[in-house]
Design a protein around this nucleic acid. Structure first.
Length: 271
DNA sequence: AAAAGCCCCTGGATGC
DNA sequence: TGCATCCAGGGGCTTT
């Protein structure tokens, strides 16, 4: 589920409310992708300084150490004052004096991992290989084009890999390529400078717009206040197989790339 | 080094 | 109604 927009929308929905909270206890449900990596008891008494985002990870900064949270495919966070017992699919609770931060994740591809710092091995293992942030100033066009030049794989899969630019998942990769007019199957290395510039702009535009719309709620995403997103209503190609292109009317096509669905308009997007 | 496949897991939709 | 199959916002790990 959650790509950069959903993760950022989640962050925005509780970062200010949890800042300054004192951890009282940690409750664990079923195992997630990785173990927490620390005795939950030692986290009691620590203070939450703030919440940052790196790619699709949330970083919960404590006065000592950091919690790395990932929502996987089906995870969502809630931050609320009244939260009694862990229910089905609730697998992590950070109980604080200001409220409970709860991870609900049916498929359990998500994770909460503790690290002493961002430079600690456990954090570097997860964050070390990530590409640049698309919405920040470091997303440089020349560097982006140069990175694409080194890849022979289809552009869709290079975007998904996340080692060039982070945060673009299966929905927004298809959407950005539509906006840029580029066929998802085109080898990344064959993208010209002008087309790379269109793609660069399209990625920023689609992600920023999705954040503004509260993300995409396909089945179960909601932010930490329980609110759904609305970007899916204005998707140009994602999940629109056979439906008319909103620009030219041609039927949207669906293909499979690396066992993931890709959607595109055969007329608007040139090989 | 880069690319391609394989898993992890649960639930909903679809088909017979 | 029941059961089997396929598919889903991710990504680390192993194998080519």
């Amino acid at each position: 589920m959650p790509e950069l927009p959903e993760v950022e929308v989640t962050r925005l929905s509780f970062a200010e409310r949890i800042a300054g909270a004192r951890v009282q206890s940690v409750r664990l449900g079923k195992p997630l992708r990785w173990p927490l990596g620390v005795d939950p008891l030692v986290l009691a008494g620590r203070t939450v300084r703030g919440v940052r985002r790196r790619g699709k990870y949330l970083l919960l900064d404590l006065d000592r150490g950091v919690l790395l949270l990932h929502l996987g495919m089906s995870g969502s966070l809630r931050f609320d004052t009244a939260m009694p017992e862990l229910a089905l699919h609730d697998h992590f609770d950070l109980v604080t004096d200001l409220g409970v931060l709860r991870l609900n994740d049916p498929r359990r591809f998500g994770a909460v991992v503790y690290a002493e710092s961002e430079a600690a091995p456990e954090a570097v293992k997860l964050l070390g290989g990530l590409g640049v942030e698309p919405l920040g100033g470091e997303f440089d066009l020349a560097a982006f084009h140069a990175a694409l030049k080194k890849r022979k794989a289809p552009i869709k899969q290079v975007l998904l890999a996340g080692d060039v630019v982070v945060g673009v998942g299966n929905i927004y990769a298809s959407e950005a390529l539509f906006l840029a007019g580029i066929r998802p199957t085109l080898a990344a290395a064959r993208i010209s400078k002008p087309r790379a510039a269109r793609l660069h702009a399209a990625i920023r535009e689609v992600l920023a717009r999705a954040v503004a719309k509260g993300g995409s709620t396909l089945r179960d995403f909601s932010n930490a206040q329980g609110e759904s997103g609305y970007f899916q209503l204005e998707a140009m190609v994602y999940d629109r197989k056979g439906e008319p292109c909103r620009v030219c009317g041609s039927p949207i096509r669906m293909i499979r790339q690396g066992q993931r669905a890709t959607y595109f308009c055969p007329v608007c997007q040139k090989p």
